[in-house]
Design a protein around this nucleic acid. Structure first.
Lengths: 201, 201
DNA sequence: GGACGAAGTGGAACGTGTTCCTATTATGTC
DNA sequence: GACATAATAGGAACACGTTCCACTTCGTCC
C-alpha cells in the first residue's frame, strides 16, 4: 500500500524516473545513516541524488514522507530477519526479554538511522497510519510468538493485550533512547521490569 | 543548572519576572489550544505575551522547552485540582482507571492543545530531560497515590514500576490518538486493559 | 543621586522546509 | 520532422525557529 501522496514505483513509467526515485531514496538512506534526522536536508538529498529540489518534492511531498518511504522497508526487513529463528529462554518472560533485547540491539547498531526513522514516525500524521500499524502488528506477533512458541497461531486475548502493552513500553523506551533521555542499559532494564510485571508466572 | 534549561519559577527573583513567565505560558497555552503545534510560533508567543523575542528565548531556550513547560504547568494544575479529593473506586485498578479517564478526557477536550504538547514531548531531546522528568514524576505520583490513597508518602518499588509502565502505555495511546491512528474510545479501552493486567488483585 | 551589571527591547539576519516561477529538456502524437 | 504536453532544472522567495547585536531600562550597591 503506497502512501497517499508519494509517487510509488508502479506510478513511474520510464526507466529514468524509476532511477531518479531510487537515487533519491539511496541519498536519503545514506544521509540518515550518517547524520540522522537533521542531516536529511531536502537540498542535500536533491544534491546527492542529482535532482532538482522541485523534482524531489514532486516525488515526495515532504521530508516526513521521504523518510518514511526510504526507511520503512528497511525497518520491516530488520524486524522480519528475526522472525522464524528459535527464541531462547525457559519462561515466557525470558523469551520475550530475549526478543526485545535482540531487536533493540539491532536498532541501536544504527543509531542515526533509528533516530531518523523514529522521529519521522513520531511526527507523521494520519497519512502514514497504515505503515505504523503494520509495524505494530509485526511487533505484537513477534511478542506473542515468543510468549507461546509451541502454539501455532493460537493466542489468547490476554496474550495480545500483554504484547501490546509491552510494545507501548518498548516504543516509549525507544523514543527516550533516541532522544538521548535514557541510555541503552536503562532502556533494557526498564523493558525487563515491565515484562516481569506483566508475565509473572 | 546550565543555561540550556528553562528558567524555573523559583529562579526568578522579581514579581515582574514571575509575571513575564506566567504571561509567556498563558500565551503558549492559548495558542496551542486554538491552533495546535504549528500555531505556537515563537514570534506570536512573544507578541501575545508582550515580551521581546530575545526575552522569550531567555526564559525558554526552544519551542520544545516552552511547550513541555506548558504541559508541566497544565499537569500541575490538573493534579492540584484533583489533590485532596478522594479518588473513587474500590480497588487500586478502579481508582487508577478513574484518574486516567479524568485526565484523558481533559486532554481530549482540547485536541489542539494535546497535539501540540504530545508532539513536543515526542520531539524533545536530552536538553529537555529535566522538564520531562518533572512531568513524569507528577504522572507517577498521581498514579501511585491512586493506587494507595491511604498510604502517605510510602510507595513500594513495584508501585513505581507499575506507574511508569502505565505512563508509557498512556503516552503511546496518546500519540496514536493524536496522529489519528486510534479513536478516543480505543484509547480508553486500551488503557483500561493495561491497568487491569498490571493491577490484578 | 550615580555607576554598573543584569535583564529586556526591537529588529535584522541566518538556516532549513516548503512553495513557486520560468526556461529548458524529454516524451508522445500527427 | 513539427508540435503539444509533461517533466525537470535552476533558483528565487517565503515561513518560522533560532541567533545576534545595539540600545534601553531596571535593580543594587556605594
Amino acid at each position: 500500500m503506497s502512501s497517499a501522496n508519494s509517487l510509488a514505483v508502479e506510478d513511474l513509467g520510464s526507466a529514468a524516473q524509476r532511477d531518479r526515485r531510487k537515487r533519491i531514496l539511496d541519498a536519503t538512506y545514506q544521509l540518515a545513516r550518517d547524520g540522522g534526522f537533521d542531516a536529511v536536508q531536502m537540498r542535500a538529498v536533491a544534491d546527492r541524488a542529482d535532482v532538482a529540489l522541485g523534482t524531489l518534492y514532486r516525488y515526495f511531498p515532504s521530508k516526513i514522507h521521504l523518510l518514511v518511504s526510504a526507511l520503512g522497508r528497511t525497518f520491516e526487513q530488520a524486524e522480519a530477519a528475526m522472525r522464524g529463528k528459535p527464541v531462547p529462554g525457559d519462561t515466557a518472560a525470558d523469551r520475550v526479554i530475549s526478543v526485545l533485547k535482540k531487536t533493540t540491539r539491532g536498532l541501536q547498531g544504527d543509531p542515526h538511522l533509528t533516530e531518523a526513522l523514529t522521529r519521522a514516525f513520531m511526527f507523521a500524521d494520519a497519512s502514514v497510519a497504515a505503515e505504523i500499524h503494520d509495524v505494530g502488528m509485526l511487533m505484537t506477533s513477534m511478542l506473542t510468538h515468543a510468549m507461546d512458541p509451541e502454539r501455532g497461531g493460537e493466542v489468547t486475548d490476554d496474550d495480545v493485550a500483554i504484547a501490546r502493552v509491552i510494545g507501548d513500553v518498548w516504543l516509549s523506551a525507544l523514543v527516550a533512547w533516541v532522544t538521548g533521555r535514557s541510555t541503552a542499559a536503562d532502556t533494557a532494564q526498564h523493558m525487563e521490569t515491565a515484562v516481569r510485571l506483566l508475565l509473572r508466572d
